[in-house]
């Protein structure tokens, strides 16, 4: 086999191993797929009670507002944790079998990222399917636009997770780092509250937060396909230079962060 097809076969085999392990572990796959339902019910419905109608200006309900945020949160938490398998492999001594194989470090990294992306995106797509539970009507345009954004953001968070797994040596370290990172990112990405009237230091955190723009894109798609007009849909942020960030810019920035995390992940595993 020539170089490239060999590397691609290796990527595919690494992806396959992670997916087959996921499917074989019934408890893990069941809870992974049940999680979206739990988040939607607990988070969405619970939070909706806490907000008086009209809190967001009257045109949209809190559920409509927070639904894309919960989809983003699911991807963030799930993706950021998805490289746990690498840390476990390292602790079981199995990672060495990959490290001595005659493949490029980038192939191993890509295989792991793709499997993490698959499982993370799958979870978010289940959540899209469950949208009617929180009163969001499913439409083909919404699904077709959300799909690529979900996959992109899942790739970004998984790549960040792989980079983290390359830096952190123990599984405890990985869990601690995950918690340390995931919550601040979650709370400053606009998932649960509009990015308006924030103190300046928080505005800065929001701006440098990679998840901000992916959540922004998810929200724009959900709201506009629900028939909410642009000025209202864009009212909750994110903002750059005092103006709301549009869908194209959200995506471009997310692609940029994705490339950065991928490069960091490859770097972390280059001997």
């Amino acid at each position: 086999m020539d170089g490239l097809s060999r590397e691609m076969a290796a990527v595919g085999a690494i992806w396959w191993r992670d997916v087959i392990q996921f499917l074989r572990n019934k408890g893990r796959s069941a809870s992974h797929l049940a999680m979206p339902l739990m988040w939607l019910l607990l988070f969405g419905v619970g939070m909706n009670r806490a907000f008086r109608p009209g809190a967001l200006g009257g045109e949209i309900s809190y559920l409509q507002f927070v639904y894309p945020g919960i989809v983003g949160m699911t991807i963030l938490f799930s993706g950021l944790f998805s490289a746990f398998g690498i840390v476990a492999d390292r602790e079981f001594g199995y990672l060495k079998a990959f490290l001595v194989a005659p493949i490029r470090p980038s192939s191993m990294v890509l295989g792991r990222i793709l499997s993490g992306t698959t499982l993370t995106a799958l979870q978010a797509l289940v959540m899209v399917g469950l949208a009617p539970i929180v009163g969001i009507s499913l439409s083909l345009p919404m699904v077709l636009q959300l799909g690529p954004i979900i996959i992109l953001f899942a790739f970004a968070t998984t790549a960040a997770s792989v980079a983290l797994a390359g830096l952190v040596r123990s599984h405890i370290g990985f869990i601690v780092a995950n918690q340390f990172l995931a919550l601040p990112i979650f709370f400053t990405c606009g998932a649960v509250f509009p990015l308006v009237n924030l103190p300046a230091w928080m505005d800065l955190l929001v701006m440098i937060n990679p998840a901000t723009y992916a959540v922004g894109a998810l929200r724009l798609v959900v709201l506009t396909t629900q028939g909410v007009g642009w000025p209202v849909a864009a009212r909750f942020g994110p903002f750059l230079f005092g103006r709301p960030v549009g869908l194209a810019a959200d995506l471009a920035i997310t692609v940029g962060f994705t490339a950065l995390f991928f490069a960091l992940a490859v770097r972390a595993f280059r001997a």
Binding site: A9, W16, A97, A101
Partner: peptide
């Protein structure tokens, strides 16, 4: 230290390795 994947079968372990080695 042991370095086989305990969640794969014997054949799958070898298959994965065969692909990695081209």
């Amino acid at each position: 230290e042991a370095a086989v994947d305990r969640d794969l079968t014997a054949r799958e372990n070898l298959w994965l390795h065969a692909v990695l080695y081209g």
